[in-house]
């Protein structure tokens, strides 16, 4: 009797452990996946620097170039961040600097410095789904979309990817009805996203074209946004990327808007 009892107890415990193990490894919780993806895509290192070149091609094949340097510092992973953007091309915006204090709990604070007028302009918070510097990238593609803005469902797990579907909690605030993201299982970098419009038709696609490991952080170094309806696209290339370079918080202040910091140079 005692013996049987012992065997039963052992079996039950073993089963429970097994069940726990299976659920933990096989089916990672979707919230964990998107959190890891968000951190991999937007919070690599404590700070970072990159030079970005965007080539914008419109539906009639005319191209325009944007070049700028971005400095970034995180308060903590998944939390508030500060960005400093120094424009190099085209010539008419060269030497302008743009600063964003990204706030996860309230509107971002943004400033633009126009050196020709020595003017520090405060920029009103805008629709985050409008074009960034005239490209096909939106502000949100550059600085990240809040995870709380969508409901997330893991719809598929392939050999290489987690496929997550995202539905906006406030459908009136965005132009899409949902978007699907492919997240690399190893690096947790989102490598592709397809947006469906209100008629459930795919109209916008963001794709990582090249990924490199830089300073221990997997990094998307080339990406593309396609406007599937009009045919225009923007290809964005990241060069001279570095992480954990010791950027100080006070660098993201009015002082350095007027006087671009050394770190914007190579």
């Amino acid at each position: 009797m005692n013996n049987n009892n012992f065997i039963l107890k052992t079996l039950t415990t073993a089963l429970l452990i097994l069940a726990h193990f299976v659920s933990g490894a096989g089916a990672m919780d979707v919230e964990t996946i998107i959190q890891k993806a968000n951190n991999a895509a937007y919070y690599a290192g404590d700070d970072g620097r990159a030079e970005i070149k965007m080539e914008i091609t419109d539906s009639q094949n005319r191209t325009r170039i944007r070049k700028f340097v971005i400095l970034r510092k995180d308060e903590k992973d998944g939390g508030n961040q500060m960005f400093y953007v120094y424009f190099q091309r085209p010539s008419d915006v060269r030497k302008m600097s743009f600063m964003v204090h990204k706030n996860t709990k309230k509107d971002d604070d943004r400033w633009l410095y126009l050196p020709a007028l020595d003017l520090v302009k405060r920029i009103a918070a805008s629709d985050k789904r409008t074009s960034f510097v005239g490209s096909h990238f939106y502000y949100e593609d550059v600085s990240g979309r809040s995870l709380n803005d969508d409901a997330h469902t893991l719809i598929e797990t392939t050999d290489k990817h987690y496929v997550v579907n995202n539905t906006p909690k406030d459908p009136g605030s965005v132009e899409f009805s949902s978007f699907k993201v492919w997240i690399d299982k190893k690096t947790f970098l989102p490598v592709k996203a397809v947006y469906l419009d209100k008629q459930q038709k795919a109209y916008r696609e963001v794709e990582a074209l090249e990924t490199k490991e830089i300073g221990g952080y997997p990094t998307v170094t080339k990406s593309r946004v396609k406007d599937l309806l009009s045919g225009g696209e923007t290809v964005s290339e990241f060069t001279n990327v570095s992480y954990n370079i010791g950027l100080k918080t006070n660098l993201f202040s009015e002082r350095y808007l007027r006087k671009p910091p050394k770190q914007i140079r190579k």
């Binding site: 309230k106 509107d107 604070d109 405060r122 920029i123 009103a124 918070a125």
Partner: peptide, 11 residues
């Protein structure tokens, strides 16, 4: 003074 207010910037 200048600050964000009502979804814009007030001064």
């Amino acid at each position: 003074v200048r600050a964000p207010i009502f979804g814009g910037i007030g001064n």
